[in-house]
Design a protein around this nucleic acid. Structure first.
Lengths: 209, 209
DNA sequence: ATACAATGTTACTGACCGGTACGTGTTCGC
DNA sequence: GCGAACACGTACCGGTCAGTAACATTGTAT
């Protein structure tokens, strides 16, 4: 974040060596997500990234800030995936949302599912001022706003209430996916969300699907 | 400090000195829940419990097993609270459940809410064989069974589906309570659950509240 | 060639971690 | 009274943690 790269003439993004900071960031992302932030030491990160510890501390002021960077990456990616999924058919937001939910339901009922990285980070760091916690809260805030916009586009009468209800279901899928494996409650995610949306849209409460 | 009393003839459970194991268990419970298991060292536990480390390891084979014991206590207590709340008026399970949900909604929208200890433990210990994770999964399994029985008593047509839908909402409240503080999604917990139950009971989908 | 930026190498710090060997004091059966 | 059993404390272990200092090496651009 300090100096510039100065090689952007013709081959600025060749992936062969890959900057140390980037390798660290990616490896830290995988390890933090799979094993939890506290469970992963900086030595393990640099070892598996094929770099050394000073390289880490040249790019990140501390492990806590590296964790915050991981969360930023994590939610940038998931928010982008959500947006592109919705933008595929802007005319039918409900169907697109349903597809996204079905995908989440599938992932959340797999054996090694690990839930949402931001939620997990907040569990690991309850201290209010911690960088990882601040970033996690920011991620959640952004997703909530995005979900509200989507529900508003569905034409719900009380969009914020419905959006929060759906958010409860989604967070519930994140959490329960880790504890109950397959056959967990996340398997009913789609039809439960359907019932909820139906109720808020005053359509026929049956007749879904 | 704290001499012994040696009176267990007639009053064997006076709370004055309290066995070291019990003090450890209680203090570990508080600290583990508030700060997370990994964040709390055994030194802090014994120091704040007013005992010493060997006392801990005489009663518990390891910190991991102490964490498992904490989870057992945690969910024993919450399951007992749930049962007594339901048993107050066995004729009207839905109202009692509604009251319990309202209480959860209130707690989950307070600033320092920490969610469910079992869910948090599973986040901290993703490794499948870990004692804390095993106990956490057991807790969740028991609660799911209890919830299914309750929904069955409500007379729902597909009780397991409704119970899992409600479980998603509950776990969602646990998780989102930690990230969004007050004004978080958990504020709509009761009315969302109502809408869901209505839909499953084929009552008028409106008319809630 | 040279200058510079990025990274690696090695070694280190002090704090803290979970866990334990061993000694001390109190209580109770006799 | 006396010794065994019990509950508990003192002092310590080796390992790991996050983070740093000082220096060597590489690659690249001019």
């Amino acid at each position: 974040m300090t100096k510039r790269i100065a090689v952007r003439e013709k081959v600025q993004e060749r992936a062969e060596p890959k900057r140390a900071a980037q390798r660290i960031r990616e490896m830290a992302g995988e390890l933090f997500y799979r094993q939890g932030i506290r469970a992963v030491g900086v030595d393990e990160i640099v070892a598996r990234a094929g770099v050394t510890k000073p390289s880490l501390y040249r790019s990140f002021p501390s492990k806590d800030e590296l964790a915050a960077a991981y969360l930023r990456d994590h939610c940038d990616a998931s928010l982008r995936r959500f947006n592109t999924a919705m933008d595929e058919r802007p005319d039918d937001p409900r169907s697109q949302f349903r597809l996204w939910l079905a995908d989440l339901s599938m992932r959340a009922t797999q054996a090694d599912y690990r839930g949402c990285g931001a939620t997990n980070a907040a569990v690991e760091y309850p201290e209010p001022g911690h960088p990882a916690r601040i970033q996690a809260a920011e991620n959640k805030k952004q997703f909530r706003a995005r979900l509200r916009a989507l529900v508003r586009a569905m034409g719900a009468k009380r969009p914020d209430v419905l959006a929060d209800g759906l958010l409860l279901l989604i967070e519930g899928a994140y959490a329960s996916g880790q504890l109950f494996g397959p056959n967990g409650p996340a398997r009913v995610l789609v039809e439960t969300a359907d019932a909820l949306i139906d109720a808020h849209l005053s359509k026929a409460p049956r007749a879904s699907r």
